[in-house]
Design a protein around this nucleic acid. Structure first.
Lengths: 138, 138
DNA sequence: CTGTATCCCCAGAGATACTG
DNA sequence: CAGTATCTCTGGGGATACAG
């Protein structure tokens, strides 16, 4: 019996491809800004630094955990800075780095496009046979 | 006992906010292009229509299922068209709609930014204390 | 060649409770 | 105020087999 079956070779090709895909800059960026809160945070910091609590209030809907987690990731990636002021109740400020601002600038057109065209997309989507009727009406 | 406790009110606020967030065009767009294969398919169709099998080969790494699934979603959203030619082995062509082309145009800058800056992000990420050493070297 | 139907896994995301 | 630690759940994504 041969050691490399077709299945085996396909498997190897896939692993190699996965590595390639994982290394693709575009994919990595999409994964980054695809995170549920990344874009909101970038937008929230666009007009200057914000405290943790300010962001929490401003973004409303983030769990404490996800806010911190996302902020940590962004800091780790050099997109925002974290500044701790040791006062009685600690104070932590977050701000965009130049790189972060740069990214924010690139993401902005996406929002513009979304605001102009997503309705069209949704209309098309809803027009499909079998589309679910509007369920949420709070 | 009161009917609306603090927890209850928080819960309601969250539901309302989730609905708002779900309706946010930007979020919806990010979810759309955040899907693993959406961007690849848009890019693949950028230079003209492609058959299902051509896409499968060109994109390499997509499972048959995910390719079809993503294509269906894009069709549903009016971003691509699906044309079936009833020959002996069926032939199916996919092409970008004007709206699809439009989206592709907006997504392109993201790729450019990624190619220019993601390395910087990754470098920063790897420089963190406790960062995992390079593991994959195929 | 294209596409459907199943079963399964896991990372992102959330709820909750506790600490400096 | 800011952050950590767990547990859980959900849905996107994948493997596999089958069908028009």
């Amino acid at each position: 019996m041969v050691t490399t079956t077709a299945a085996r070779r396909r498997q190897e090709a896939k692993v190699r491809y996965d590595a390639y895909l994982a290394g693709c800059p575009s994919r990595q960026l999409l994964e980054l800004i695809g995170n549920k809160w990344t874009a909101l945070i970038l937008a929230g910091l666009h007009n200057g630094p914000q405290r943790h609590s300010e962001l929490a209030r401003h973004i409303a809907g983030v769990s404490q955990k996800m806010l911190t987690q996302t902020l940590r990731n962004l800091e780790r990636d050099g997109l925002i800075t974290r500044t701790v002021t040791a006062s009685v109740p600690v104070r932590v400020d977050y701000a965009l780095t130049p790189l972060g601002h740069d990214l924010q600038r690139v993401v902005q057109p996406l929002k513009d496009w979304a605001e102009q065209h997503m309705e069209q997309v949704l209309t098309h989507r809803a027009a499909q046979p079998g589309a679910l009727p509007e369920a949420i009406t709070i």
